[in-house]
Design a protein around this nucleic acid. Structure first.
Lengths: 186, 186
DNA sequence: GTCGGCTGTAAGCGAATGCTTACATGGGGG
DNA sequence: CCCCCATGTAAGCATTCGCTTACAGCCGAC
């Protein structure tokens, strides 16, 4: 009945359970006992395979943020990220940003935001305009996406929480284009 | 040397200390011992005067959110809230949104957001346009303000974190006007 | 076969947390 | 004066937390 011994499978189960719980509850409200219980393994194995709760959290963020950027051509990044943020069909808590937003005080989370969002998202966004303050404009668009995620997923603000993702994306794209338009004068 | 006994002053000191620490660290990372220590009173008094840590948190949110909306004519609400969110001169952690954002899982925090932001901010914002999806557009503008606050205060994202508030407000107002404009056709 | 180490388990340790209780103390009203 | 209760204090309780330790079982190497 008991599955065969398999360290890789155990690690994967812990990682998956941690991603789900960190995303749902944030770092503080998630206990190592909860993670181990959801993964169906003994909690001591969490420390054997990941060292500490902090290290496990960092591993979750690294894994998720790696997935986030691998398939977004710059031109469609805003739309892609926004639609992905809006999409709640499969499992909304799997979105990499959720764990970050719910654990914003954590060093690893803040670092991921500054590095990933800063150096990847924002650079891609800022490439869309040639305004001299392109980086600031990109940050503002990024802030919008983050804010929508916060209001939707964290607070469940209506009507935004249940609005049609395509409609939201259209409205945001329409307004954001004011900030990201090219002057083609330089 | 010791100040005279004064229940009102003690309550006020606890409230102020709690507002500061909840804003800086969020609900979970703030301990009742920290609050009492910062207020310079015995921690048992926290429970005597507020009942529980949860109730103290709710009192803090109620006090702060009451202050937030008392002087914002609808037309200038976006600009006022945004500028206040951007203003870090006095004590950024005093901004009511900070405690909420850092404690988003907490029932009281989520309730405050849904009620205050939902019924006050969003209604005021939605009154600025006559589009049929006014409420959704208002939510999107609100999300923008919240996202800017998150990126700035929580994550310290550059260049947004140190950008000129007036410039940010101008850019946001420019783009948001696309969503909030009146058609004057109905 | 048996030895060694990788995998999994059970129990608990020390610290921190929210909260309570039992007790000082001080100052105003009779 | 002195009594009484509002105010403040010290100590600790029960629980939960991250993490550790001591041990059992399984499997391949030789």
């Amino acid at each position: 009945m008991s599955r065969p011994r398999n360290a890789a499978a155990t690690k994967a189960a812990l990682l998956e359970a941690a991603a789900k719980l960190f995303g749902e509850r944030g770092f503080d409200r998630t206990t190592v006992r909860d993670i181990a219980s959801l993964a169906g393994v003994n909690q001591a194995l969490l420390f054997r395979y990941f060292g500490s709760k902090d290290a496990l959290f960092a591993t979750v963020l690294a894994t998720q943020s790696r997935e986030l950027l691998e398939d977004s051509p710059a031109e469609h990044l805003l739309r892609n990220v926004l639609l992905r943020m809006m999409d709640e069909k499969p499992r909304p808590e799997d979105h990499p940003l959720h764990a970050v937003l719910r654990s914003s005080h954590h060093d690893s989370a803040a670092e991921v935001v500054r590095r990933q969002l800063g150096e990847e998202y924002a650079r891609a966004l800022s490439s869309l305009t040639d305004a001299e303050d392109a980086a600031l404009r990109a940050d503002l668009v990024l802030a919008w996406v983050v804010g929508i995620g916060v209001l939707r997923s964290v607070f469940g603000k209506q009507p935004l929480a249940e609005a049609d993702p395509a409609k939201v994306a259209a409205l945001v794209a329409q307004a954001a284009s004011v900030l990201l338009e090219r002057t083609d004068s330089g």
